[in-house]
């Protein structure tokens, strides 16, 4: 068992999938010799060569468009957006073409778009976005957001093997901060569409994903010490399709729910999960559902303002106490 970071888990998944299937190739800005802005693809150019680790012009529309074209002729491209923020430039290729191609022509489009997302890094409004909800709204796309090295690796493998376009939101704050011992050489694929029960509990459910899984774990520890609360944490892992069964199961166990995401509040994943619970599990609730999310503003650049803007364990604790004492 070797301890690897979240970032190394992504690199390992890419390497192992490229070794497994010669149709898998990578494309993106400076992902070759430079190894990508965050060095996720470091070493892969040397190992697999220029034809399978392709540097592209600075054009996200071209990157995703080329990926769609390559997928239509049987390849399995993995496109890197340097920052998730820049995915907007390739938006039409994703939602108009990639997402609808199978519906319109019956042709699979097995592409993966890796999108380094998230704030807390003092990156400001152009380098901190969490745009996952835009893509969850579009039928025809799958969306995943891992929180641990094991899931980062297993979900990327699943995404590459999936015949649908998959948006893979990797959280860059977690890149080198989260480490985990993973078995070496094991081909573990984490199925898309399955949530993970991070921590069972009795009093309240925190439904979350991505970086906020770690904030929820911190909050749960404090709530256990200070309030003697046994907090359950559910990591959605996949945002489209949602694991509805897992969501309703946790509501059934605790009857109190706080949904936590790093993306801003309005029309976020939390709204969809809350609607799902309201539609299918209203009678199980003992309190209104609360959501904890970033403020509805662009990400501030000033560290003190960014801290105020972001969700964190303290805000989660306040929300939990509100639903507990309702």
């Amino acid at each position: 068992m070797a301890e690897i970071t979240y970032l190394q888990a992504i690199t390992e998944a890419l390497r192992e999938e490229m070794q497994r299937d010669e149709k898998v190739f990578l494309l993106g800005e400076d992902i070759g010799i430079y190894g990508g802005a965050f060095k996720v693809t470091k070493g892969l150019y040397e190992e697999f060569g220029q034809a399978r680790v392709m540097d592209t012009p600075i054009s996200e529309s071209a990157i995703i468009g080329v990926a769609v074209g390559a997928a239509l002729v049987g390849m399995r491209p993995v496109a890197e957006m340097q920052f998730a923020d820049f995915i907007t430039v390739g938006f039409s290729q994703l939602v108009t073409n990639a997402a609808t191609m199978h519906y319109r022509y019956g042709i699979p489009v097995p592409i993966v778009v890796r999108a380094p997302s998230g704030g807390g890094i003092h990156g400001g409004a152009f380098h901190s976005k969490n745009p996952e909800a835009w893509f969850v709204h579009q039928p025809g796309l799958k969306v995943v957001a891992p929180s641990t090295p094991a899931d980062a690796k297993g979900l990327l493998k699943a995404a590459i093997r999936d015949n649908n376009p998959v948006l893979y939101f990797e959280n860059k704050f977690l890149y080198r901060r989260i480490k985990e011992k993973l078995p070496e050489g094991d081909d573990v694929v984490v199925p898309i569409g399955k949530a993970r029960l991070v921590k069972p509990g009795r009093h309240v459910s925190l439904i979350t994903y991505g970086s906020m899984v770690h904030a929820c774990l911190q909050a749960a520890e404090i709530l256990n010490e200070q309030d003697q609360l046994d907090v359950e944490i559910l990591d959605l892992r996949t945002l489209q399709p949602l694991d509805k069964e897992a969501v309703l199961s946790t509501v059934e166990r605790t009857s109190r729910v706080v949904i936590v995401h790093e993306a801003n509040l309005t029309a976020g994943i939390g709204a969809e999960v809350a609607a799902l619970i309201s539609d299918n599990g209203f009678e199980m609730l003992d309190a209104p559902i609360k959501r904890v999310a970033a403020l509805d503003t662009p990400t501030p650049y000033a560290p003190v303002l960014e801290e105020y803007f972001m969700p964190n364990p303290e805000k989660i604790i306040v929300a939990v106490r509100q639903v507990i004492h309702f």
Binding site: Y34, A37, F38, K39, I121, H122, G123, H127, K172, F173, Y175, R176, R177, K179
Partner: peptide, 17 residues
């Protein structure tokens, strides 16, 4: 680890080689 992680992020943000 925290310092290294942030230094790497800063390097990426400033695009230093």
């Amino acid at each position: 680890t925290e310092i290294d992680a942030q230094l790497e992020i800063d390097r990426a943000l400033s695009y230093d080689v």
